[in-house]
């Protein structure tokens, strides 16, 4: 198969230098995940830097190396850059020991973004699971800023439990704000407690209450592969076309320049051909184990 996306804007990076960023604010999101807000240190870098929703940076921690981390902040404010990081590997395990004022390296942005323009004119539904909320949050920001471009904007978020819901501090205020700005929030957790006022169950249980209009909808889906597979199948069952569904894939990336070979998913280099793919480009690949 060929991965082609003539309709998508694709960044063609010229030799991208490593820029130095300073950690300015740390927000603990869940027991193992925090959002690190940072500014690029040099003014020239701040002025030059911009990104599109769904893109990622190679983030460098001194002595440990680089990891690909999606950008979770508002693309309209690229000087306030946020990365939401779960401490889980050699490099990311060093994030919890970062303090305010510490410096890290940032190379990017890389990758194919969410197709905000292709989704315009109809309904936009964003489906996120767990840490998958981070890469779609910039798309949510962008949709809110350009609310008139879309008919309905729906965000569905699933997490294991209330304590695993990202960006969820003052959840009541947040959902209220979203509704006030014309976004329909639908939240659910696999395991709820008595204080949890939203849905209970996996993220696909949110599809019926949302009353999606398959003819008019574009879906951005991001989460663990198994979650994306189930979410996409539910969307397809409701009559959505495979070319209106987009997923964000995750693989090991060490260069972000189609060179190191680690991020291959079949014929695709996820770092450059993705991380966002139109579902029909990768449908066959997602059905295989250990690809």
């Amino acid at each position: 198969m060929n991965v082609v996306a003539p309709d998508l804007h694709r960044e063609r990076a010229e030799a991208v230098p490593m820029r130095i960023a300073v950690v300015r604010r740390i927000v603990q999101e869940t027991p193992d995940t925090a959002t690190y807000w940072m500014n690029l240190r040099r003014r020239a870098d701040r002025l030059a830097y911009s990104f599109a929703p769904g893109q990622f940076n190679m983030v460098y921690v001194f002595g440990a190396g680089e990891v690909p981390i999606s950008i979770s902040s508002d693309p309209a404010r690229p000087t306030c850059l946020a990365h939401t990081v779960r401490a889980t590997g050699r490099v990311t395990n060093l994030f919890p020991s970062l303090s305010l004022g510490d410096e890290i390296g940032v190379r990017g942005p890389f990758g194919r973004p969410w197709p905000m323009r292709e989704a315009a004119g109809g309904d936009l539904v964003i489906v996120a699971g767990g840490l998958g909320f981070a890469p779609v949050r910039p798309a949510l920001y962008a949709a809110m800023r350009n609310r008139a471009h879309y008919r309905r904007v729906i965000i569905m978020v699933g997490a294991r439990g209330p304590q695993h819901m990202l960006f969820a501090r003052r959840l009541g205020t947040w959902t209220h704000t979203l509704r006030a700005r014309g976004v329909e929030p639908h939240l659910t957790v696999d395991i709820a407690d008595d204080a949890w006022p939203y849905g209970h169950g996996v993220v696909t249980t949110l599809f019926d209450p949302a009353h999606l209009d398959p003819r008019m909808t574009t879906a951005f889906v991001c989460g663990p592969e198994i979650m994306m597979r189930f979410a996409v199948h539910e969307l397809l069952e409701r009559g959505m076309g495979t070319h209106r569904i987009y997923v964000s894939m995750e693989r090991n990336m060490q260069c972000a320049a189609r060179m190191c070979g680690h991020c291959q998913l079949g014929p695709a280099f996820v770092c450059a051909d993705g991380p966002v793919f139109r579902y029909d480009e990768v449908a066959e690949l997602l059905e295989e184990e250990e690809l």
């Binding site: 590997g89 995750e250 070979g261 680690h262 690809l291």
Partner: peptide, 26 residues
């Protein structure tokens, strides 16, 4: 690096190609 090593496909805290079969196929 070699795609025959398990850690080659390490992603987000786990390996994608754990079986030798998957690595040879890759």
């Amino acid at each position: 690096a070699s795609c025959f090593s398990v850690e080659f496909s390490h992603t987000a805290g786990m390996e994608v190609r754990t079986s030798r079969e998957a690595r040879y196929r890759q």
